[in-house]
């Protein structure tokens, strides 16, 4: 394993961590708001509030870890992605800022304000959509070189591409699927039967669209980026395993093993996420950047990996403490104490 591969694997892990944690968070915000409209808010409110309160900052840090690490290990990405993604990522920052601060305002300041809750729900679906732009652009075909040698984002191509829209749709439905699955588990621990029933239903509703769009994207890749399509096909067995995990998770949901069901949802996404990551090796940005030509110097790479290991030794016990105190703590989940 080369140091470049170690670097990108670490970053991929952060990104996966963000996808899962943020999906739960975004989805929870969405359900929290949408149930106000459907008048079922009283059912889900307690469970969602109790989960979200202590962990909201942690989600954001995963994202920061990912892009700081990206610039650290692959500094050239700063130039390419930084230049072309000015507008989409700025929109993401603005939405993240509104979401984060208004959540804090709503929770610690004036409790139960409907405006905050709605804002929190709407940003929860807009952020995945705008952040996904980075992934879409990395697939190639959306960056144009101007006569003066500048690079810029081809917005017309981006907005008219069915491939791009499919990825946006996938990001939205998987956010809702992951989140519903987790919240079903969380309500079962809280012994909140009404909330459990509702989230179980939501998990079923969003499960099949997730699989259908994912499959659609793989097929579309054939036209969008044939080389990558071949990479995907050669890893068919990983995607098949992912699909099996999906089926197992649904079966476990049906047989009321909510914790295991959620674990298999995570496994399903992990397999697909890593299979996708491996299939695009060695490209960071088709066809401009690979992990090799954009890599930082070796000294910095080793320094970063050392810090990463030391940092994990500090963080894992701390996160374990959070987990023990809030997330896996039955008295807390049930009563908020």
């Amino acid at each position: 394993m080369t140091i470049e591969v170690i670097g990108i694997s670490v970053l991929w892990l952060f990104l996966f961590g963000y996808v899962i944690v943020a999906s739960i968070d975004f989805g929870a915000g969405f359900f929290n708001a949408s149930t106000i409209v459907t008048k079922k808010h009283h059912i889900v409110n307690t469970v969602i509030q109790r989960y979200l309160s202590p962990v909201w900052e942690i989600t954001n840090v995963f994202l920061v870890f990912f892009f700081v690490g990206m610039i650290g290990f692959f500094p050239q990405t700063a130039y390419y992605f930084g230049t072309v993604l000015l507008i989409p990522i700025s929109i993401s920052i603005i939405l993240l800022a509104l979401r984060g601060s208004y959540y804090a305002f709503g929770t610690y300041g004036t409790k139960g304000h409907v405006g905050y809750t709605l804002m929190y729900g709407v940003t929860g679906v807009l952020i995945p959509a705008s952040l996904t732009t980075a992934l879409i652009v990395s697939q190639g075909g959306f960056i144009r070189e101007t006569a003066s040698g500048r690079i810029e984002l081809d917005y017309v191509a981006l907005f008219t591409s069915p491939f791009a829209w499919s990825i946006v749709v996938l990001s939205l439905v998987s956010v809702l699927f992951i989140s519903a699955s987790f919240l079903a588990y969380y309500s079962s621990v809280a012994q909140d039967k009404k909330a459990l029933k509702l989230f179980k239903k939501y998990t079923w509703i969003w499960s099949f669209p997730t699989i259908v769009t994912a499959l659609g994207i793989i097929i579309e890749m054939r036209w969008h980026n044939p080389a990558h399509f071949e990479g995907l096909v050669s890893l068919w067995w990983l995607f098949a395993l992912s699909f099996i995990c999906f089926l197992i998770s649904l079966w476990l949901l049906k047989t009321r093993n909510y914790g295991w069901s959620f674990i298999f949802v995570v496994l399903q996404f992990a397999l697909a996420f890593y299979a996708y990551g491996v299939s695009r090796y060695p490209y960071l940005l088709y066809p401009h950047l690979t992990i090799y030509d954009s890599f930082t110097n070796e000294t910095m790479a080793y320094a970063l990996i050392t810090v990463f290991i030391l940092g994990l030794m500090l963080l894992i016990p701390s996160l374990y403490l959070v987990f023990k105190l809030f997330i896996m703590n039955k008295p807390y989940i049930q009563s908020g104490k």
Binding site: I71, G72, Q76, Y79, T296, M300, L304
Partner: peptide
């Protein structure tokens, strides 16, 4: 950032 990232990423 492309330039300094190689030096101050740590």
């Amino acid at each position: 950032m492309e330039f300094a990232g190689q030096l101050v990423a740590l």
